[in-house]
């Protein structure tokens, strides 16, 4: 029997019970941006009120193609997707400071430049630590090299500024890849799976995908249907819980901790 090393000692202490179930592990003090189709604030407020939980105010902005300055967020969604995503994050980490970046708008489409503007705004203005991207840009929209490079550089910039981006893998399509998930790493691309506990997740290394998270939502049409769009905010919420215990963690540290939390959880199971 080999003597345990210092790493074994350190990692053996990193258990889901100690990290994710710590009473302080609520997302408190962690700013998270949901770059999506907007958030219907009143619906979430009501859900929190029904549960008797205090509700952290949600701020945000609306980003539109060819509009250089973000428009004010009026508390409404462009479509329900973003609200379902925000609800998952708030269910997992109810004390996070949530920002909604609506990049879809009435047109129902999101352009690469709009997503880039929202990411930059989330980093520069909102100073977030976590960005949730449950949206995908289809491969054909990134045929132009400058566009592709713009998105990739923005993702890298987030990493180098200690902001961790979680992106939905959208990996079901047989022929095309979904971006920005395909840029992983430096972001974390999240695949879908079903777990008995929404705080559980798995490390399953595949091409450009490392993590699987619980993929059922709790609010809105199609939310009960497993989707990478719902898996992503679960893992983003879990990261926010981790960060609320140590807010200065760097993206690679969070990833390592997530990895070891999974290992410990699997071992105990």
């Amino acid at each position: 029997m080999t003597e345990p090393t210092v790493f074994d000692e350190i990692f053996s202490r990193l258990t889901p019970e100690r990290v994710l179930h710590d009473p302080r592990s609520t997302g408190e003090g962690v700013a998270v941006a949901v770059i999506d189709s907007g958030v219907e604030r009143a619906i979430l407020e009501k859900r929190f009120a029904d549960r008797g939980q205090p509700f952290q105010p949600i701020d945000g902005a609306v980003f539109r193609p060819n509009v250089p300055t973000p428009l004010p967020y009026d508390g409404h969604q462009s479509s329900p997707h973003g609200t379902t995503v925000a609800d998952i994050i708030l269910t997992v980490a109810p004390r996070v400071t949530l920002y909604s970046a609506d990049v879809f708008g009435p047109q129902g489409t999101c352009e690469v430049e709009t997503v880039v503007a929202a990411i930059r705004h989330a980093i520069d203005v909102w100073k977030v630590k976590v960005i949730n991207l449950s949206l995908g840009v289809p491969e054909h929209k990134l045929q132009q090299a400058p566009r592709r490079l713009l998105l990739q550089r923005t993702i890298e910039e987030a990493y180098f500024r200690d902001v961790l981006i979680f992106a939905a893998a959208h990996n079901d399509h047989p022929t095309t890849r979904s971006y920005p998930a395909a840029f992983a790493p430096p972001l974390i691309s999240v695949d879908k799976s079903l777990f008995d506990d929404p705080l559980r997740f798995a490390y399953v290394l595949r091409e450009q995908i490392e993590f699987q998270a619980h993929s059922r939502g709790y609010l809105g049409p199609f939310s009960r249907e497993p989707a990478t769009s719902w898996a992503t905010p679960h893992l983003a919420g879990i990261a926010a819980r981790v960060l609320s215990l140590k807010p200065d963690l760097k993206p690679f540290e969070i990833k390592t901790i997530l990895y070891w939390l999974f290992k410990a959880g699997a071992k105990s199971a």
Partner: peptide, 8 residues
């Protein structure tokens, strides 16, 4: 509208 953003 839910599906447009859901992408799957």
């Amino acid at each position: 509208s839910c599906l447009v953003s859901l992408q799957e």
